[in-house]
Design a binder for these strands. Sequence first.
DNA 1: CTCATGTACGTGCATATGCACGTTCTTTGA
DNA 2: TCAAAGAACGTGCATATGCACGTACATGAG
Lengths: 153, 153
Amino acid sequence: MSQSERKSERHATTNVAACTCANLRKAARVVTQRYEAALQPTGLKATQFTVLATLTKRGDLPLTHLADALVLDRTTLTRNLKPLAGQGLITIENERDQRVRRIKLTAKGSKAFKAALPHWEKVQSKIVAGLGHKRWSGFLDDLAATIAEARST
Amino acid sequence: MSQSERKSERHATTNVAACTCANLRKAARVVTQRYEAALQPTGLKATQFTVLATLTKRGDLPLTHLADALVLDRTTLTRNLKPLAGQGLITIENERDQRVRRIKLTAKGSKAFKAALPHWEKVQSKIVAGLGHKRWSGFLDDLAATIAEARST
DNA sequence: CTCATGTACGTGCATATGCACGTTCTTTGA
DNA sequence: TCAAAGAACGTGCATATGCACGTACATGAG
């Protein structure tokens, strides 16, 4: 078997080992473990850090909008928020439209996020350096494109 | 702000929106939903399909080895296997070394995997086409590199 | 042979994930 | 104004994920 044949088989669409879903999940699992370890001293889980980061960047948001920003099911977010609300890092408030739950970052939440930021930067830098900045940058673009395409389909 | 500055900020290591972990998880979530939908008529979940595919490719394996191949925590796999064993798609057998649980694909499991394969190919093709084959191929390489790097660290 | 060491595993706990279904509230068309 | 349509949400169910901890078994040094 030639080199090109081997490569084309490895990357054939129909090679189950090349399953986009399985490989994405593998990467998500192992990378999450690195981030969890790095964030461990902050008391925040990786997903919680992401929620706080999104609220910091986007400001208060209704639950559904926050879920959309996080590419997360609405009902999953409902439950993910409970530990954060329990710790007083966010509040869940009603609006004039009583159907809407507005998710609000508290001062404590903002402080916790800022305190966690250096730990996040450390592990993020390590991952980026591991791939090399240029390659990582393209990788991130591919992730965004994949998300956009899978969402629109 | 110039174009290059905007780009460098977007891909700055310290831009929380560029969090490798969060973006990997987002992509894994939305892509998983596509595969779940495609596999729905087969009665297999995406993770279950992956287990069957791995057993098909690698043959029977002890639990820990299978977990390693799947980049999955051993204890998670223990539980993920239960529905598969319940449906008779795999068996969990003892060895001479009584500590070892050998995971074995049954004939029924093999059949279920083969029946699911066309459904998998359909959604896989769609995802690949969405990115373009060349870009997808590089994306897959990046995923593999990320997994390898995060595992070794 | 025996005990210390190491290996393979399961379970309790906590969080993560999404679908189906039902509830409450708002908006809109007649 | 009022009923139908639609929007925002919560909960039950099932699976997914990994850590801490404990158990059973195998192996090797003495």
